[in-house]
Design a protein around this nucleic acid. Structure first.
Length: 939
RNA sequence: GCUCGGGUGGUGGAACUGGUAGACACGCAGGACUUAAAAUCCUGUGCCCGUCAAAGGCGUGCGGGUUCGAUUCCCGCCCCGAGUACCA
């Protein structure tokens, strides 16, 4: 029989499911290997052809590792909490759980038909109570922990309480809120329980605080920074505004340094690591306190709740330039602005603040070169020379970074320079080689001038000296600053994990651990309440022993921040994963997914993992040893061109792409499924919509050629290619190999179905190797020839090398070459073909299983067969066609024995009549012979 | 602007440590089989100049350099994509 992919694929998919071929054991004498895919959010649209790209690659790798004798864990599940199901629920009233289940079923069917070797017995769904029970459990652990800087790890909050009881707050070196109280042990004990709880909240790794959040009114929720793009929500594109709210936060900043250091220990793509480094944004510098001049005597605003401070604290990475400070700039939102503003300057300052607010609302893209700001009327004293320096506000200083205040050194910083020019402030050079006629010069070379005790020193000496000076004066100290902020951990939405917290007199308390999972309550509709509370506020009778629950739910990244542990022990009802399972699987050896998760999921996961390690629950500091980003599959849109008549109206006539210059046309997307190699199937097009039924066409060479453009793959552009259709027409094995054949895994590329035929033909040709012309299975037991063995061993080595470096596209080519060679050799020998089946099986598992059984092997044994051993002896040649170059240009090949040494080769080449032709009778200037490679003659 | 990728035939791409540029596949052209079409098979296919051919010239974004030899290494520039956005 000819290659019947439909029957074969169905048969083997059923076999694998029935016999649980890919079920992984949590103990084995084999070494472990954990291959993980980023689990999908099951959207209503199902899979398009871009989604499986990474899954195919990881599946090939997982199957290959099984052949190499590893115990492979290759699981799959669903990140099933999320906004789209809830939006759908708002529109239709259908419970998100029902939508989600239906979508998961579609995903499962689509995944199954591609023949993945997932261990489905370990499937997880983040929205299932069995799963989110443990997400809540981790939340409880985070709440009950604080970060001890001295030990550089998270510790139990009980330990902190113990310390407070014995020593008060002294000797605690913790990551905490800015305003923590100082108290003695006696004072601590005198606090009420509420006071103690309020204080402890400032230390907990998950905590409640008022923060400025990205509020999206249209979605009715708060978004994380990485969910906002250019002021609009990533999902849906709704406007986002800044709003102050009480929010749960995660103290990820406690782990900033470890998250940064860990990057050096993992095998991830460099751009991805770079993104995380930038996101963490470490800068080394100093914080300096500038005393405010004559402050006390003027504006005492403490009665209005505005802090009465003596200092403005700045953060700088160039404390060595402090003698060049000629003014200070603070953010317009800085809390001291009202207090610092003198009556004379009040109108100007107020006007500026109003203007800034408007600006950020209107357009934040406003040119960064425009200088703006306003003088407060107040001054500070420079701690190194006692000089009086004016304080300005300006929007180039951000309230959220550092202290929201900078010391301006116009000779060294371009923004400060422009600001000084604009406001006529002095610019003092402080380094001898500085050139500041037209712009600031941030050099660190040269020696200091105009800098009192630093004069003549270089950068290193000067920085050390000035920090020592400031420290001695109590006016500053060396400091490391991070750009990264604590992560907000609450969404005002329904379809997420409930936070296991209730409130008593305004303070949060955890519910008892035996009461989790705290289940999502049923509500009447999925909208905020009339009073503006989150949807959970609608649940009737939903309270904890009479106390109100937290009404926000956890964000999308909660469930995905630890899911790889659950796969290790997916059905454990006593623990999130057993100690034994974690000890065996440890970490993920290979993780494949998109780079869009660089600063979201991948950072949060590393954070939670480090926390679990601190608690002794995890054992590896980094969860994902090696990570590969698969490129995005872009859409390839096709267009038809509608003729525009003299009055400018659209007609029902369409012009082929090559002719559009001669006509006036308008461009319309056409469904790519009606187009083959850019040629439109006119019948399908006519049937697409009633209005096209009588369409006419101006053809080019009898064909209608469509236009092409690369865009995002989306329904509205009619360029979505559904894998179901391709599986139906060519089979899963063809689709798997074609997706790999498309190009390097990590590269983004447009989807183009042109060319899938080539892969399909290859599989048929492979099938034919095992069959005679009448498609009878016919394999010979004869001993293989030298050239057959050579073909085989070439591919054994090639595929091995390619898989190890994730170059799947080149292996597909090599398979084609091998099958072409063996077809030419008319090879049907078992000794060759059986090995070839094993090598191909990770790529095209169904056809391989079928042929494996036809070869007489027991069904189901292929997945754990041994990968063939490469024997270099079969590739040894005794002759080589040396390329002969004249002046570096290849001219001809000469067959020369490989046993000859360099001088022998040289004389043989020069003696050749063909070479002599190029030499024109003259002796060559130089002859380069690289044995086994090339001969180059210089004339 | 800064950071990171990337520019190779009509198309997707290959060339792994500097050593035959364009493997493999698509497309296209021609041919075989067929009443015909589809399918299948065979041949050719970087560009230019040659009547086919032989021979030659040009070719890996552009300009230069190192080298016997550069898609690969170095310097400068242009273009495309991604990330980031006044980070002190």
């Amino acid at each position: 029989m000819d290659y019947q992919f439909k029957e074969i694929e169905k048969k083997w998919q059923q076999f694998w499911a029935e016999y649980q071929t890919f079920k992984a054991d949590n103990q084995s004498s084999k070494p472990k290997f954990y291959v993980l895919d980023m689990f999908p959010y099951p959207s209503g649209a199902g899979l398009h052809v871009g989604h499986p790209l990474g899954y195919i690659a990881s599946d090939i790798f997982a199957r290959y590792k099984r052949l190499r004798g590893f115990n492979v864990l290759h699981p799959m599940g669903y990140d099933s909490f999320g906004l789209p199901a809830e939006q759908y629920a708002i529109q239709t009233g259908q419970h998100p759980a029902i939508t989600t289940d239906a979508n998961i079923n579609t995903y499962r069917r689509q995944l199954d038909q591609l023949g993945f070797s997932f261990d489905w017995s370990r499937e997880v769904r983040t929205s299932s109570p069995d799963y989110y029970k443990w997400t809540q459990w981790i939340f409880i652990r985070l709440y009950n922990s604080w970060y001890n800087k001295a030990a550089n790890r998270a510790e139990s909050i009980d330990k902190l309480v113990q310390h407070f009881e014995q020593h008060g707050s002294s000797g605690i070196n913790a990551v905490s809120d800015d305003e923590v109280a100082s108290f003695t042990a006696v004072e601590w004990k005198s606090y009420t329980s509420e006071e103690q709880q309020a204080e402890l909240l400032k230390y907990r790794l998950t905590y409640l605080r008022e923060s400025t959040v990205n509020w999206c009114p249209a979605l009715g929720t708060v978004l994380a920074n990485d969910e906002v793009k250019d002021g609009f929500s990533e999902r849906g594109g709704y406007p986002v505004e800044q709003k102050k709210m009480m929010q749960w936060s995660m103290r990820i900043t406690a782990y900033a340094e470890r998250l940064l250091q860990g990057l050096d220990t993992i095998d991830w793509p460099e751009p991805l690591k770079e993104m995380q480094r930038n996101w963490i944004g470490k800068s080394t510098g100093a914080s300096v306190k500038f005393r405010i001049a004559e402050f006390e005597t003027r504006n005492d605003n403490s009665e209005f709740g505005i802090p009465h401070s003596e200092f403005i604290e700045v953060f700088t990475t160039r404390v060595d330039t402090i003698f060049g400070v000629t003014f200070l700039v603070i953010a317009p939102e800085h809390e001291l602005v009202p207090a610092l503003t003198t009556p004379e300057q009040k109108a100007e300052i107020d006007a500026y603040i109003t203007q800034t607010k408007k600006k950020s609302e209107l357009d934040r893209m406003a040119d960064a070169k425009t200088v703006s700001g306003a003088f407060t009327g107040s001054y500070v004293i420079n701690p190194v020379n006692g000089e009086k320096v004016p304080i300005y506000i300006a929007d180039y200083v951000l309230a959220g970074y550092g202290t929201g205040a900078v010391m301006a050194v116009p000779s060294g910083d371009q923004r400060d320079y422009l600001f000084a020019k604009h406001f006529n402030l002095p610019i003092i050079p402080i380094i001898d080689i500085q050139k500041i006629e037209t712009e600031a010069d941030p050099t660190k070379e040269g020696h200091y001038i105009n800098s009192d005790f630093m004069n003549g020193l270089d950068y290193k000496e000067g920085t050390a000296k000035v920090i020592a000076y400031l420290e001695a004066k109590g006016a500053g100290k060396a400091k490391i600053n991070y750009r990264m902020r604590d992560a907000i951990f609450g969404r005002q939405r329904y379809w997420g994990e409930p936070v296991p917290v209730y409130f008593k007199e305004g303070l949060p308390y955890l519910i008892d651990e035996q009461d989790i999972p705290l289940l999502l309550p049923e509500i009447d509709k999925y909208l905020p309440t009339e009073t503006g509370e989150p949807p959970l506020g609608r649940a009737t009778g939903w309270n904890y022993k009479g106390f109100e629950y937290e009404l926000s739910t956890m964000p999308g990244w909660a469930g995905s921040s630890w899911y790889w542990y659950r796969y290790m022990d997916a059905h454990n009802t006593d623990e999130f994963a057993s100690k034994e399972a974690i000890n065996y699987w440890k970490d993920v050896d290979l993780y494949i997914g998109g780079s869009e998760h660089a600063t979201g999921h991948l950072l949060y996961s590393r954070f939670w993992n480090k926390f679990l390690v601190d608690l002794g629950l995890g054992i590896e500091e980094e969860p994902f040893k090696k990570l590969i980003n698969q490129g995005h599959i872009q859409g390839r849109s096709n267009f038809v061109y509608r003729l525009i008549d003299a009055e400018g109206r659209g007609t029902n006539t369409f012009v082929s792409h090559g002719l559009i210059k001669q006509y006036k046309t308008s461009e319309l997307h056409v469904d790519v499924n009606f187009v083959d190699n850019d040629i439109l199937d006119i019948d399908k097009f006519k049937k697409w919509r009633e209005e096209y039924a009588n369409a006419e066409f101006i053809l080019d060479n009898g064909k209608y050629v469509c236009g092409v453009e690369i865009e995002k793959m989306s329904k509205s552009k009619y360029n979505v290619v559904n894998p179901d259709i391709l599986v139906e027409r060519y089979g899963a094995d063809t689709l798997r190999m074609y997706e790999m054949f498309l190009g390097p895994l990590e590269q983004s590329k447009p989807w183009n179905t042109n060319g899938i035929e080539g892969v399909f033909k290859f599989l048929r040709k492979f099938w034919k190797l095992f069959h005679d012309d009448q498609f009878n299975f016919r394999v010979s037991e004869e001993a293989p020839s030298k050239s057959e063995l050579k073909s085989l061993h070439k591919i054994i080595r090639k595929v091995e090398e390619d898989i190890e470096r994730f170059s799947f596209n080149t292996s597909v080519s090599s398979f084609m070459i091998a099958v072409n060679e063996l077809t030419d050799l008319k090879c049907n020998k078992r000794a060759i073909l059986q090995e070839l089946v094993v090598i191909l099986s990770p790529y095209a598992p169904h056809i391989s299983e079928e042929l494996w059984v036809l070869l007489g092997n027991p069904a189901g044994t292929l997945s754990h067969a041994a990968y063939p051993r490469f024997n270099p002896e079969y590739l040894i040649e005794d002759e080589y066609a040396y390329p002969i170059s004249i002046n570096g240009k290849m001219k001809l090949n000469l067959n020369i024995s490989l046993s000859l040494d360099v001088p022998a080769i040289e004389s043989l080449v020069l003696a050749s009549a063909e070479v002599q032709k190029y030499l024109d009778g003259k002796p060559p200037k130089k002859v380069i012979v690289v044995k086994g490679r090339i001969v180059n003659i210089v004339v």
